[in-house]
Nucleic acid binder design. Structure first.
Lengths: 332, 332
DNA sequence: TGATTCGTGCAAACCGATTTGCTAAACAGT
DNA sequence: ACTGTTTAGCAAATCGGTTTGCACGAATCA
C-alpha cells in the first residue's frame, strides 16, 4: 500500500535504480526503448519521485518564496495585498509550471523564525533600502531577485518597474489634461519606485517651471493618515491643481481629503495613481491609473529567479511598457 | 564554508549525532547540562537542521498548502483574491509560528502538475461539492481541512462559517430596516455557504410569508454577468425591495444594475453582502456587510490542520460569531 | 589483430537527519 | 552481594533518491 520507490520501479522494469534515475533526469543517455519502458511502468504503478530524497542529494528544495517588505496586513492592508497578491497569483502558476512550489513570507517581524522556509530563491516585491529581508537571504546564500530595484543594490537582479518613465507619462498626461501645478505624494520608505518617481518629478518641475510640492507619508499610516496629511498639504499649497499619488491607498485618502475640502475631482483638482487595483476602479470618481502588467512582471521575476538559481547570469530585465488607464479623475 | 551538519555539531560538542538529535527533538532524555552545551555550540556555529534530511526520514515536508477552488485570477478576480488573501496572510503567519511554510496553490487547471507540492496538509477555502482538489489530496493521503464545509463530506474537518446564521442575521436586519420582499443572489456552484444561505432563506421566507426570489449566477461570470443578470432579475421581480448578495463581486454588479434601472440604494432597494472587503467599503453607497473574522478563521484552520496532521482528532470548529457592519446601503 | 572509442547499464557511495537496539555505569532494594 | 532499574550515550540502519567509477560488449580505427 506504500508509495512505490525508485527501487520498486527499477525492479519492475528489470533495470537498476541508476538507469531509472538517468531515464528521468536525462543526465546520461539511456536507450530510448528502455526509457520508454520505464516511463510506461512508472505510469502504471504510479511512481513519483520523492522530493525530499531529491532535495537531500541535490540541495534543491524545489520551493521559491515570495516576500513583500510592505506590512502585510497592517497599513494599506487589503490594497497593498491586492498588489502583492496579483503578483502572487501569477507567480504561483509560473512556479508550478516550472515544477516549483511558491510559498508566502509574511512581513518580517523582528526575530521571526524563517527557519521553516529554506527556499531555492526569493522574490522580493518592492524592497526598500537596506531591507532586512535582502540581508537575511543573501546572508544565507539564497539567490534573491526583486520586483523593483533594491536601492543601492543594483547588483541584485530585478525586474525594472520603469517608475521614472511611468511618472513622466502620468505627469505629462496631467499637464496635457490642463493641470499646471502638480504635486506629488509618495511614501517615506526608501523604495526605488518612490526615489525614481521623485527624481523624475523634480526634473519635470525644472523643465516646466513648476515649483515642486512633495509630500512623503509613512506607509504604515495607510489611508487615514493620507486623508489627513493630504488635506493639510492642500491647504498649505492651495495653488495645486493636480496630484500624482502612486500608492493607491494614499490616493484613496486624497479623494477623501479633496471631498472634505470641498474640492471637486477633476474640476478643481486632478488625481492620478499608479497601481490599477480595486481602489482606483471603485473610487468616486474612478481614478486614472497605470496598467503595470503585473502578471507579466511576475512571470519575468520567476524566470529571472530561475536563471539566478541555475547559476546563469541574471541580468535585470525591464517590465513591459506601462500604460495609462484614463478615467474620470483626470478628465480634461 | 559549508553549512554545519549534525555531525559537525556532534563533534564540536564531543557527543554523538544521536545525542544531538535527541537534545533537539526531546524524544529521549539527555542530560540538561549536555543539552545546554549542545545548544550553545549550535548557536555559535550556526547550525540549523537540514529540512530535506528531516523530511526524508520523517516523511514530513514542513509545508502546508492553501488552495481556493475559486478561479484565482479570473472571475471575481481581485475581489475573491481579497477574500483568499486575507486568509493567506494570516495563515502564513500562523504557519510560520508553527515552523511550517505556507505555499499557495493556484486554481486547479485540468492536468495541472501539482507534483511540485507535497504538503503535509492542505487548507481548502470554500470548496464545492465533489471538488477535484479534495479528491486529489485525499487520494494522496494528505490531510485536508476546509474553510466552509465540503458539501456532502461532513467527515472532513472544517471551520464552520455559520453561513446559515449569517444569512438569518442579514435577512432579519433587512426586514428590520423596512424591507418586506427580499431576494437572494448566490453563485451557481455548490458551495456550502450558498447551500446553507439558500436553505435559511427559504425557511425565512416561509416564516415571514415572503415569496422566495432566488438568482444563481455562474461565478466565472463575475461582476459583469451579475450586473446584467440582476437587472433582468429586478425587472422580472419588480416587487423586490431588498437583496442579499453574499458574493461581493455580484453585489458590485447589483449596484450597477440598480443604477441602470434608476433604482436608488437604499431608498428603492436595500442591498447587503457578506465579505466585507474593499468592494463593500468603496461601493457607492457603501454596502452593509458581515465581519467574518477571517483572521481568526485562518488561525483556526491552521490549528485544525495541525492536529489533523498530528493524527489527533480534528473536530470541526465553529468560526467566531459573524457581525453585521451597517452601512448606507441598508439604512432604514 | 590489437587498440580505442562509444553505448548501455550496474554497484556502491553519498546527502543529513531520525530511530532502534544496545552497552556501561550508577543507583536502589532486599 | 546480587538483582533490577534507571540514566546517558553510542553505533548502525534507514529514508529514497543522485552521482561517480567501473564493466562489458559492439563498433571503429590503425
Amino acid at each position: 500500500m506504500k508509495k512505490p520507490t525508485i527501487s520498486d520501479l527499477a525492479q519492475a522494469a528489470g533495470v537498476s535504480k541508476t538507469t531509472v534515475s538517468h531515464a528521468f533526469s536525462g543526465r546520461r543517455h539511456v536507450d530510448p526503448e528502455t526509457r520508454e519502458r520505464i516511463e510506461k511502468i512508472a505510469q502504471e504503478i504510479g511512481y513519483r519521485p520523492n522530493r525530499a530524497a531529491q532535495h537531500l542529494r541535490t540541495g534543491r528544495t524545489g520551493m521559491i518564496a515570495l516576500a513583500s517588505s510592505m506590512p502585510f496586513s497592517v497599513a494599506a492592508g487589503p490594497s497593498r495585498l491586492g498588489f502583492l497578491m496579483e503578483i502572487a497569483a501569477t507567480a504561483a502558476v509560473a512556479s508550478l509550471t516550472r515544477n516549483m512550489a511558491l510559498c508566502l513570507i509574511p512581513p518580517f517581524q523582528s526575530g521571526t523564525q524563517l527557519d521553516a522556509i529554506t527556499p531555492d530563491g526569493v522574490i522580493l516585491v518592492e524592497p526598500f533600502q537596506d531591507d532586512p529581508l535582502v540581508q537575511y537571504f543573501t546572508g544565507l546564500g539564497v539567490p534573491v531577485v526583486s520586483v523593483g530595484c533594491v536601492p543601492g543594490r543594483e547588483d541584485i537582479p530585478h525586474v525594472d518597474l520603469n517608475s521614472g518613465a511611468t511618472a513622466r507619462m502620468v505627469l505629462e498626461h496631467l499637464r496635457a489634461s490642463g493641470a499646471s501645478r502638480i504635486g506629488l505624494v509618495t511614501g517615506a520608505q526608501r523604495r526605488n519606485s518612490y526615489l525614481e518617481t521623485e527624481a523624475t518629478y523634480r526634473m519635470f518641475c525644472v523643465e516646466t517651471g513648476i515649483e515642486p510640492a512633495c509630500l512623503q507619508l509613512d506607509e504604515t499610516g495607510g489611508e487615514d493618515l493620507a486623508s489627513e496629511a493630504v488635506a493639510g498639504f492642500l491647504s498649505r499649497r492651495g495653488d495645486l491643481d493636480a496630484l500624482y499619488v502612486p500608492v493607491d491607498a494614499f490616493a484613496s485618502g486624497a479623494v477623501t481629503a479633496a471631498a472634505a475640502k470641498g474640492l471637486k475631482i477633476p474640476q478643481n483638482i486632478r488625481l492620478a495613481t499608479r497601481y490599477d487595483g480595486l481602489r482606483a476602479k471603485l473610487s468616486q470618481p474612478p481614478l486614472t491609473a497605470v496598467e503595470l502588467h503585473l502578471e507579466a512582471i511576475a512571470d519575468q521575476a520567476v524566470g529571472l529567479l530561475m536563471s539566478a538559481i541555475d547559476g546563469g547570469i541574471a541580468e535585470p530585465v525591464s517590465a513591459p511598457q506601462p500604460q495609462l488607464v484614463l478615467r474620470e479623475s483626470t478628465a480634461g
